[in-house]
Each structure stands twice: as structure tokens, then as C-alpha cells.
């Protein structure tokens, strides 16, 4: 809902245009254009080495751009980094934590670095993620370190959350808890910018997503529109084997494609509602019916396959 409240007139939470960055001869970012609306959850996708982390580090002023303009929450990170980072929560892609001090002690330090965060807030987040604050950070597993990283990113209720590969190392149950935290942050008006190398990690949470490849944004997509276009693959098992005539009958349905039969089994893809398919199938005895969730990643690139970069992007996407 929050995303819809943000009108076009509102200044974007992140506004990048023509961003370039080279390391020596290697071009890391080659004219990135990206606008993230205030209050939306935005997925930032791309394979490793495509420029995701470089872009994020420019937003935080760890890296200085060669050209282009960058505005985060209305501020230029290069000149106004300290004030900007006060309103940002950041989860790095690779978390390093050492030392024999406890997770609680480390989070206490981060809280003081923010000018103070109520202890109860840290304990609440740690409780939600099942993080034991008394354990020394040195011995923590990757997943537990990720929890420490999530707590410090969310604890001060920032206006903008920048999360680099947030779900890596989290088991499925914790991924759900994480997504609930993201939704709550959005309901409270925060903007969430999260990167991933796979679409499936963000497709449940994101309002929109962009794909970066070779230092350039190759696609930006509304996730609801993407889901609406989704083609489901159906598989039906009947009590008796199907004949060729019956297969043609299914194939004649308006939104059904790719009908194949093999003995008593029929598979096809359905564009939109499966109502007609179900009604036709119900004339026979159905033993089993299943639908496979669409591969949004595939879909993402199908849409952009005509574009110059889309084809290349698709090849590397598998």
C-alpha cells in the first residue's frame, strides 16, 4: 500500500542517473539509471560481478563515482554522507565479525554509534530471529552472523534499508520472518532496497525489481504485472489413458498451450485463469492435478528478450 501512496511528484528515495565507475581499466558501472520510490520495496538483481555491490557502495559513499548523479533521500552521498547514513540501515553482502565479545556487546556498540537505540528494540529483533545475544560473535555460524547484521540494520527504524543479499545463510523459516520484518518496515513508511542474485529471493517481498548486468540496468519491472503475466504449468493424471482426439480438445481451449499427453497424463501451460481447463478435465475422472509456480526469472527475461541486452542477459541467467 505504501508504494501506491508515493505519487510521481514525491522525490524518489534513490535517484541515480548516468552513474559510471571504473577501477583502472575495468568498467564496473557503465551508466546506471535507477529510481526507487519512497516507501516501496525494490529488488536489485544481477549475477555476481554485475555491479550490484559497487552501486550499493556508491550509495553509502564507500566508493566515489566517476560520473553521473546520485541522490539518496534527497542527499548526495559524497557531500552529505554522515547525515544520510543516519537515516539508512545497511546489511553488507559479506559480514565480517571477529572478537570474543558477545553479539549483544557488538550490537550495543552499533547502537551507541547511532546515538542510542533502546535495548528493548535490540532484544525484540533478536528474539524474533532467534539470536542469542550472549554468545561471542567469533563462534557464530553464517546464519547467526546474518541475524546480527539484520538486527543492526533494522534496529533504529531507518527511512531507507539497503540490504545486500539479505537472505543468504537464513533457513526458510527465518526467511519468512525476515520478509515479515521487511513488510512491517514498509508499512511504517520505510523504503527497502534489497539485492539478490536470484529473483526468487525477492519476488515475494518486492513491489518492483531491476536487473543489472555488466554495469547497466537492463530491465525494470513491476512485480504485480509480472505475476499477472505468469504462465502456470499444469499436470493432470486421469483414471484412463487419453486419446489423440481428447488431446486436441484440450489444445483447442483458448488460453491453453503446449498440450502433451503421455498415457494417462496430460501437461500444458495456462495463460491466466485455469477455469476452462478445470471444467474440461472434470468431465473425466481426475486422479491428480498439480500446477507448477511460474519461473519469474524466465518470465522477466522473456519480456526483455527482444531488447539488445535481454538476449545476452537470458543466456547468463540460468
Amino acid at each position: 500500500m505504501a508504494a501506491e501512496q508515493a505519487r510521481d511528484g514525491d522525490p524518489p528515495a534513490i535517484d541515480i542517473s548516468g552513474l559510471t565507475k571504473s577501477y583502472g581499466r575495468r568498467t564496473a558501472l557503465n551508466g546506471v539509471d535507477l529510481r526507487v520510490r519512497e516507501g516501496e520495496v525494490f529488488g536489485f538483481l544481477g549475477p555476481n560481478g554485475s555491479g550490484k555491490t559497487t552501486t550499493i557502495r556508491v550509495l553509502l559513499d564507500h566508493i566515489r563515482r566517476d560520473a553521473g548523479s546520485v541522490s539518496v533521500l534527497g542527499r548526495d552521498p559524497r557531500t552529505d554522507g554522515v547525515a544520510l547514513r543516519r537515516e539508512v540501515g545497511y546489511l553488507p553482502g559479506e559480514l565480517t565479525m571477529a572478537g570474543r565479545r558477545s553479539a549483544g556487546d557488538l550490537l550495543g556498540f552499533y547502537a551507541r554509534l547511532r546515538g542510542g537505540v533502546p535495548r528493548a528494540r535490540i532484544e525484540e529483533l533478536a528474539g524474533r530471529l532467534g539470536l542469542d545475544l550472549r554468545r561471542p560473535v567469533r563462534g557464530l555460524s553464517k546464519g547467526n552472523k546474518q541475524k546480527v547484521g539484520l538486527v543492526q540494520a533494522f534496529m533504529h527504524r531507518p527511512r531507507l534499508l539497503i540490504l545486500d543479499e539479505p537472505t543468504s545463510g537464513l533457513d526458510p523459516l527465518l526467511q519468512q520472518e525476515f520478509l515479515a520484518m521487511v513488510r512491517q518496515a514498509r508499512e511504517a513508511g520505510a523504503t527497502v532496497f534489497m539485492s539478490s542474485h536470484v529473483l526468487s529471493e525477492v519476488h515475494d517481498a518486492a513491489d518492483r525489481a531491476a536487473i543489472i548486468r555488466d554495469g547497466r540496468i537492463v530491465a525494470t519491472e513491476d512485480m504485480d504485472a509480472l505475476r499477472a503475466r505468469a504462465v502456470h504449468e499444469f499436470s493432470i493424471r486421469f483414471a484412463e489413458p487419453l486419446g489423440e482426439a481428447e488431446a486436441r480438445e484440450f489444445g483447442a481451449l483458448e488460453n491453453v498451450r503446449g498440450v502433451r499427453t503421455e498415457g494417462d497424463r496430460l501437461t500444458c501451460t495456462v495463460d491466466g485463469s485455469p477455469d476452462a481447463l478445470v471444467k474440461l478435465a472434470a468431465r473425466r475422472t481426475v486422479l491428480l492435478m498439480s500446477a507448477v509456480e511460474p519461473d519469474l526469472e524466465e518470465l522477466f527475461f522473456t519480456h526483455y528478450a527482444d531488447g539488445a541486452d535481454g538476449g545476452a542477459a537470458r543466456e547468463g541467467g540460468g
Binding site: L60, H62, G81, V82, A83, R85, R86, V88, Y90, P92, E94, L95, T96, M97, A98, Y110, L113, R114, G115, G149, Q152
Partner: peptide
């Protein structure tokens, strides 16, 4: 090099 500086530098510290 260890990466420990990254988080601190994401905080409001000049």
C-alpha cells in the same frame, strides 16, 4: 581488508 570497516563506515561517522 577483513571487511570489519565496512559496517562502521555505513554508520553516521565521517
Amino acid at each position: 581488508e577483513e571487511g570489519a570497516l565496512e559496517l562502521v563506515m555505513a554508520y553516521p561517522v565521517g
